[in-house]
Amino acid sequence: MVLAVVLAVTRVGGADEGVGEFDIPVVLPLTGAQVATLRGVAADLPEARGVIDEVAERAERLRGMAPTPLRVIHYEGLVHTDPRRVATCRSLSQMGDVAWLVRDWQLTGDERSAATLGRCVVAWSGAYVITGNDVNENKLYPLLVAYEALRPAFDDEDRAAVDRWVEELALTHLERAQGATRFSNRYVKRLRLLTVCARILDCDDWLDEVVASVERFVVHGLRPDGTSYDLEERDTLTYHCSALRPPLEIAMLLGEGADDLYAWTSPEGASIRKSVLYVLPYARGEKERREWRHSRVRLDHERAAAGLPGYQPGMLYDPRSSLEMFEQAAYFEPAFDAVVERLRGESAGVSWQTLMNRVVAQAREGN
């Protein structure tokens, strides 16, 4: 019998005090043309008012915050209640704040947000020692998005130092990706990091490698029936969706090649699109699924034994867990907008991701 651990939880700096977990809002690297499109769309789209106002309110509280850099991240492989992970999240949760400020800068160009982001980029890149851990370093993604946006404004010395750090990060994850034997959500997290690093340093060779690696993921990590390595290994749709989100974002960022990569089919018949469609009946409530009953991963069993409610064997899959994936997939197939509305429980308004979908699509059409 599993002894449930009941935790009193309070929010501190975006992290759960007592539980090593925090949220990072969606943040997407945008070109200069896409930023201009965003500012135009935001001004002319009444249904975006709610998400825009939230960005403004959050940014006002966060501008001027002091960086909280870490030299070492203790996160991957640790149960949420592990004291090392809890302590790490107190500092690492700043990545959520960075994401909000990136959104604000993309919307407004506010110099105070830019200055705060610049200090965070310099402090974190100067302190953190790269290890190649995909789970840990994926948390730094908002920092990389911020640097891509603001890199021209950095002075020569800081830009050179951060560029060296970005190059080391990219080469480390490129090497790990090329030597991969397991094509799970962790593999595509590496590719997501490599994508933004390639954009920062304008390295087309890395982007070519990303596209080839996404195709390897489809070949080895996805199945012709729409299932995946993650679904087999973890016995949960949560990780299945998590594995699809980085390649969906990567495909979206490719511009003209986006639709091709989304629909690209392996010789065996697997594709990103098929694996998205596999989730559709669960998202619509047409099917139910019991989660975590046959996970092969030790950490999943440790999380269940610790009483963490989201990891209990036999729990019903919550369709809302697929919301962010379907918001991304709606960029490629607007018919998914109906699924997104169902999952959100709303008939109006947009999320940041669906706003990004419009921005990227409009900027693409304008080219």
Results as ranks from 00 to 15, higher is better:
G179Y: 08
G179R: 13
R182T: 03
F183L: 11
S184V: 05
S184R: 01
Y187K: 05
Y187Q: 04
T195V: 04
R199C: 02
R199I: 14
I200W: 04
I200D: 01
C203G: 08
C203A: 15
W206C: 09
L207Q: 13
V210Q: 06
A212N: 12
S213F: 15
E215D: 03
R216M: 09
V218R: 07
V218S: 08
V219Q: 15
V219K: 10
L222W: 05
L222C: 08
R223T: 13
D225P: 06
G226F: 04
S228N: 12
Y229P: 00
D230R: 05
D230P: 03
D230S: 06
L231Q: 04
E232M: 14
E233G: 01
E233C: 06
R234T: 00
L237N: 01
Y239M: 10
Y239T: 08
L244T: 04
P246V: 09
L248T: 05
L248Y: 07
E249I: 09
A251T: 03
M252V: 03
L253Q: 15
L253G: 00
G255I: 12
G257W: 09
G257H: 15
G257V: 03
A258D: 09
A258E: 11
A258C: 07
A258K: 03
D259R: 15
D259F: 14
D260S: 11
D260N: 13
L261A: 10
Y262P: 04
A263D: 14
W264L: 11
W264R: 07
W264F: 12
T265A: 07
T265I: 13
S266Q: 12
P267G: 10
P267Y: 01
E268A: 15
G269C: 04
S271R: 13
S271W: 06
K274C: 03
V276I: 06
L277Q: 14
V279K: 04
Y282E: 09
K287M: 05
K287L: 09
R289V: 04
E291G: 02
E291R: 01
R293Q: 09
S295G: 10
R296L: 03
V297F: 01
V297T: 09
V297N: 07
V297M: 02
H301L: 13
H301R: 15
H301T: 09
A304H: 05
G307E: 01
G307R: 01
G307S: 04
L308D: 04
G310W: 08
